[in-house]
Simulated scan of single mutants.
Amino acid sequence: MRRALGIAAAALVATAALTGCGGGSGQAAGTPAAPATPPATAPAAGATDSSQLNAMEQKVDAAESAAAAADSDAAQNN
């Protein structure tokens, strides 16, 4: 049972990380978002992609680490 909860928690963390942790736009459901206006001094696309990739890799590593800890905890309790 505990292992299943640990795996479910890790899956939830991974899903949240991969989806950007939800909307948070403050708009009502079903309301279309206003078109995004790029900033006047937008960073280079390669730099943005690289930093986003690094952040995503850190989140995935954290989720994998949480899953491993949950497995270890479940093994100790059985």
Score class of each variant (00 low, 15 high):
residue 13 V to P: 02
residue 47 A to H: 06
residue 47 A to V: 12
residue 1 M to N: 09
residue 67 A to I: 05
residue 70 A to D: 02
residue 54 N to Y: 03
residue 9 A to T: 12
residue 29 A to M: 12
residue 3 R to T: 12
residue 59 K to N: 10
residue 58 Q to E: 04
residue 60 V to A: 09
residue 67 A to S: 06
residue 68 A to E: 02
residue 50 S to H: 05
residue 42 A to N: 00
residue 75 A to F: 07
residue 77 N to D: 02
residue 71 D to Q: 04
residue 23 G to S: 15
residue 58 Q to G: 09
residue 10 A to E: 06
residue 48 T to I: 14
residue 58 Q to T: 03
residue 4 A to T: 12
residue 27 Q to S: 12
residue 62 A to F: 14
residue 52 Q to F: 10
residue 77 N to R: 14
residue 51 S to H: 01
residue 18 L to S: 12
residue 27 Q to F: 08
residue 53 L to I: 01
residue 41 T to M: 07
residue 42 A to Q: 14
residue 52 Q to M: 08
residue 9 A to V: 10
residue 4 A to R: 13
residue 62 A to E: 00
residue 44 A to W: 07
residue 41 T to F: 08
residue 9 A to K: 01
residue 73 D to G: 00
residue 39 P to I: 00
residue 58 Q to S: 09
residue 72 S to Y: 08
residue 62 A to K: 01
residue 36 A to K: 08
residue 64 E to F: 07
residue 77 N to S: 11
residue 59 K to F: 04
residue 52 Q to R: 10
residue 3 R to L: 15
residue 24 G to I: 03
residue 37 T to A: 15
residue 24 G to R: 07
residue 33 A to K: 13
residue 42 A to V: 10
residue 42 A to T: 11
residue 34 A to V: 09
residue 36 A to F: 12
residue 62 A to R: 04
residue 32 P to Y: 03
residue 34 A to M: 09
residue 65 S to N: 06
